[in-house]
Design a protein around this nucleic acid. Structure first.
Lengths: 138, 138
DNA sequence: GTTCTTGCAAAATATTTGCAAGACG
DNA sequence: CGTCTTGCAAATATTTTGCAAGAAC
């Protein structure tokens, strides 16, 4: 994905494409795993933690990224993969390895049918499996 | 559930039933919603936060309780309901209200079929819906 | 010049550990 | 005694906010 495409995503969501926002989005596009704030802080060295945080907050509001709670005691962020970069159906399951701390996307695990009472307005879904990953069980 | 039964649960799991542990377990039995450390700290006033924490840690290891991450930025604890006070199938979905912070147990939502690769050892599952609860959408 | 964005510093929130005193057997 | 448990205090880890300087338009 080139810079023009990155900027398009932002503009389409009504976000002004500042340098910092492009940096963060580029990094999220590049990432194959969900990443946390500390990860991004290391990758985007010139940028301040608080600024990264605020960009992520913005992206989350605008449904560009998903926020994942994997039990590692730190939030992880991941690009939405949906065509319009957001939909509940886009949300997929994750596997958190309790040993190495890696998070894997389990694209093949279907989210369950949502048969919860209509009075509940569902905005997002998090399905998290925890245990030991293949690498660590060797 | 009376004190003898509470003590039995502990003894059956190989846990010495100290006064503190009985206190915490009783409170968890009484709770209809998952509770966090701060909740327990208020309910069990004479008891120290660190001690509660360590009891919860122990209970979690011994599969007496589930630890739930609902996105509220604080862990919630809930008694396992399984016959033997633990099984993955016992784990059910939860709904977190982003407005009032309540967590509801959605006993009717089935966990999805676990068709993830066999190389992954699944130890626990967290299925979390987030949005607005009936009370808050009125 | 008014609004939006950024960096620095620090606050706020939660979790987790060190250690010595006390309980238990 | 020796081990396990507890309370107090403090360390850690992360997220989140206040504020002033700077950039954008």
């Amino acid at each position: 994905m080139n810079s023009a495409e990155i900027e398009n995503i932002l503009t389409n969501k009504g976000i002004k494409p500042t340098a910092n926002r492009i940096l963060v989005l580029k990094e999220l596009v590049r990432s194959t795993h969900p990443v946390n704030l500390a990860d991004l802080e290391m990758t985007l060295v010139p940028m301040d933690k608080a600024s990264i945080f605020r960009v992520l907050e913005l992206f989350s509001e605008k449904d560009i990224i998903h926020v994942i709670e994997d039990g590692s005691r730190s939030l992880k962020y991941e690009l939405c993969h949906g065509k319009d970069h957001h939909s509940i159906s886009d949300q997929h399951a994750h596997f958190y390895c309790e040993k190495c701390g890696s998070v894997y996307c389990l694209d093949d695990v279907r989210l369950p049918d949502i048969n919860i009472p209509a009075e509940y307005t569902v905005k997002s879904i998090n399905l998290m499996f925890k245990g030991i990953c293949p690498k660590c069980s060797d």
